[in-house]
Amino acid sequence: MERWFAERSVGQLLPGDHAWFSYANGEEQEHVVGAFLRDGLTASDKVIYITDAAPQDLPGLRTRYHLDPDTYLRTGQLTVLPTADACLTGEVFDPGRMVASLEKVLARAERDRFRGIRITADMTWAIRQQSGAARLLDCEAGLDAAIAPSTTAMAICQIDQRSCTHDELTVLKETHEVLVGANPDFDDGVLTITRTFQPRGLRLKGELDGARHAVFAEALHAVTEQGGDVHLNVAELRFVDLGALGMMADTALRLAARGCLVLDHPSPDLTEVVELIGGRVLPWLKIGDGEAP
């Protein structure tokens, strides 16, 4: 089924994208949603967030990106819509009302001549209500009809994956054509480094050699700072040099008591190199399959 989705980092979202974002934890939400809000606010887009959270608590906006929501609320660039106004009838999630509210704010933003419009909502609360998953499915179809034809608007539907069953997540995901994830920390066309959150670590793609040791060290440091197990997903890493393997071993040694460093899904070639020269010389490097040990 995966091939039916376009996977995009948050910075690559396009007008008309109605994207799905199921986050593993608050850190991932801050990373991705924070970037979505920041990009919109700094590019003078209209940004609409449907939530009962206080503007000060919008994910990542202040903590990660150091933007003050009040500034943008005052100018009308940022709108925070409480669920009671946007999508509840009584206390109950009302898909029809949510779609109608959305169409209204879209029309208003277009009248106000915003170049781009960004809408997001964390729907975790809705799925927790009785028959929430079914209502959410109804809602998604309406949202898709409103967003997909737009040349100015893009939307992210958020769900905390810890609050849903695997089947619920799959069905909801399939109502979206775009899956959104974190922006790479680094991408120079040869190497891409992207944070992962479940498991916690980095996804490395391309080729990692001496020209990129410094950026790799930086990303490795950031993700290992707080301890705990760290996974490096190397499934799409075509080349890795001995220096980078040594850096991984150093990191593993530093982590030691606080967690381990695991190389997930290495190619047969990489496994062979790690086993040949690893063993006694890089004894801290572990090979894994993306699952917690």
Binding site: L242, G243, A249, D250, V273, L276, I277, R280, V281, P283
Partner: peptide
């Protein structure tokens, strides 16, 4: 000679000779 795992001094050339 296999380098010391902690300092890994000479690791690069040793790795080349292993490969």
């Amino acid at each position: 000679l296999p380098p010391d795992p902690v300092s890994r001094s000479g690791f690069g050339l040793w790795g080349v000779r292993m490969l």
